[in-house]
Write a protein that binds this DNA or RNA. Structure first.
Lengths: 150, 150
DNA sequence: GACTTATACATGCAAGTGCATACAAATATC
DNA sequence: GATATTTGTATGCACTTGCATGTATAAGTC
C-alpha cells in the first residue's frame, strides 16, 4: 500500500465537507427532535437497533458495534434509558458476564413517536436537497470510506 | 415547498452513512493525532482559520461560523488555547465588546506540525479509498446539504 | 439623552464523555 | 485444577459540553 502523502485538494475538500456537513445536518435534525421534546439521536439509534433485533434483544456489544458507541458510553446511556423504562437489562443465559438489553413497550412506542419527527427531518434536510440518484451515489461513496482496510 | 414525508430508503441510507462514516473517519484521524501527542481537531480548525485570516486575526464570531462551533464552546476552547500560548486575545478597535483572536508563532508552528500528521491521515482514510473524481463528486454532493434553504 | 433592545463574550451548574481502571465471570495454559 | 489471560460491563475522576444566564458595550427609539 502506498505511503500516505498529502491529500489532494478534492480529497481535503471532501473530508472537510463530510465533517462540517455531517455536523450541520445532524444539528438541524437534533434540533427538530429536541424541539419536539425528544431525547437525542443516540437514544433513537439504540431503540431502533433493539427493535430490529430478534425479540427486541441485543447484547451491549452488538449495539456498540452497530451504532459506533464507546463501551463505557453505552453503559451509561443504557443506565439512563433503563431509568426511563425504555429498555430492560436481563441476564444472558449461560454467561453471567453478559447481559441482554431488551426494548420495552414504552421503548417501542418512543421509537415510533420519534420517527414521526425524525423521518420528516431526514426528508427535509437530506431528501429535499438531493435527487434520488444523488442520494444513492452519496451513500455509495460514503460506503467506500468505511470498509475494513488500513 | 413540499411538506416533508418519510424519506426514501436511499435518502435514509445516505443520512445514516453520512453520520456513521463521518464518525468513523473522524475517529481514525483523531486517533492518529492523539497518538502523535497532538490536541483534538477542533484546535487545528481554529489555528487554521486564524492562519488563513489576514494578519492571523479573527473575531470569535468569525471563527464560530467557519468551524461551526457554539459560542460558549469556542469561548472556553480559546481559554485553553490562550493558556497554551497558541493564540492571544487582543482588543477590537472601536468596539469594546468584541475582541480579536490572534495566532501566535507557537500556534503557527503547532498548526504546521499537526498538518504533518493530519494531511497523511486524510490521505490514508479518505484519499486512498476514493478516486480523485469520486472525491470531487462526494464534495459536490455534501455541498448540496449545507446550502441555506428551509 | 434616558430607556429599551440587540450584540459580543463569559460563566455557574448540570449533564455527558474520555480515560484508566475495577470487578466479575469465562477461557486458556500449564 | 490452580493460575494467568481474556472478555464483558461498570465506575471514579477529570475534563468537556449544553443550557441558561450574566456582564458589558453598542445601537435603536422616543
Amino acid at each position: 500500500m502506498q505511503e500516505p502523502q498529502n491529500p489532494s485538494e478534492a480529497v481535503t475538500d471532501a473530508w472537510v465537507r463530510l465533517i462540517r456537513g455531517g455536523r450541520e445536518v445532524a444539528g438541524r435534525i437534533e434540533a427538530d427532535l429536541k424541539q419536539a421534546g425528544f431525547p437525542p439521536l443516540a437514544w433513537y439509534d439504540v431503540l431502533l437497533s433493539l427493535k430490529k433485533a430478534a425479540e427486541g434483544r441485543r447484547t451491549p456489544r452488538e449495539i456498540e458495534r452497530e451504532v459506533l458507541f464507546e463501551q463505557y458510553n453505552l453503559s451509561r446511556l443504557l443506565d439512563r434509558m433503563e431509568a426511563e423504562g425504555l429498555v430492560r437489562r436481563i441476564p444472558y443465559p449461560g454467561d453471567r458476564r453478559r447481559q441482554l438489553i431488551e426494548i420495552t413497550d414504552e421503548g417501542r412506542a418512543l421509537q415510533r413517536r420519534m420517527w414521526a419527527v425524525y423521518g420528516p427531518a431526514i426528508s427535509r434536510y437530506v431528501g429535499c436537497r438531493l435527487a434520488e440518484g444523488e442520494a444513492a451515489e452519496l451513500a455509495r461513496l460514503l460506503q467506500k470510506l468505511v470498509s475494513n482496510e488500513t
